[in-house]
Amino acid sequence: MQLPRFEYVRAASLDEGLAALAKHGADAKIMSGGSDLLVNMKMRLDTPRVLISLGGIAELQDIEELPDGVLRIGAGCRLTDVIAHPGVSARFPALRDAVAAVGSRHVRNIGTLGGNLCLETRCWYTNQSEDWRKARDGCFKTDREACHVIKTASRCHAINSSDTAPALIALDASVVLAGPAGRRTVKVLDFYRDDGVQHTILAPDELLVAILVPDDGRRAVFAKLAQRVGLDYAAGSFAASLRGPADAPEAVRLVLNAVGAAPKALTESERLLMASGLTDEAIEAAALGARQSLGEVTNLFTPSGFKRRLVKALIRDALVTLRDQTA
């Protein structure tokens, strides 16, 4: 597959990037590493007139440990560099595990953390060759008000497969967004919208600049199941964090991804574990509750029944690991 033609703009600074975005607006796409975007462009899922590359912006490629314990990761940091950073491995092993679960080593040498958070949603109907799509009706992602995966759907259910998103949400991380009016900081959970077409709150004139990971004493785990371990999108991914003793938690956060258009916070199951601690019974109930709370599960990449069973097993095993690490 060859790339479609486009005008290439390389931003040397954040201001240049924002200016280029303001100028080209809806005609432009932002490229960080390109491992997701270029594939989508080759498949003609994206045909921007202008490609704005952020690869030359040094400010986006720093990892800093701030005095208040916050780890600040530039959005343009290669996934490989995030894994190699001593502060990430020592203080946030669940984040390291989640980053290491993305793609293959080859992909992680190109892809960036900001890029993985913005990863385009995917679905078996649309993520096909141009010829395949031409032979069929369009959908919410292209040119029709229809979903061919869930026929009754009134919106796009394409799946969010970011591995780093659930880990960062479990760690209560935030993202810093820069736009013409200045910067805003939002929790990673609030960065996402439950809509496969417009799956983040990033405005057309905004850039994702940095990820802030606070160190508030949480311990966390990340787990992923994929058909091909070494290089694949998740069939299900899950992250959990715990502050305080496992039998009397001060805070619990459970996040599931690759089941819908947005990462899903399992608030009911969190409450259950807060109330009774991470006992075997409570873990079982929390995993079952999560499975039951899934609602519409799309038949995407794996059968929905398999996905429901997978979710329960993934959550139960990860929570047992988290509890045993804590004990």
Binding site: S35, L38, H106, V107, N109, I110
Partner: peptide
């Protein structure tokens, strides 16, 4: 010395 996918790297970069 890192492994790079040349098919997903723009030459201009």
């Amino acid at each position: 010395g890192e492994a790079i996918l040349s098919c997903l790297s723009l030459a201009v970069e």
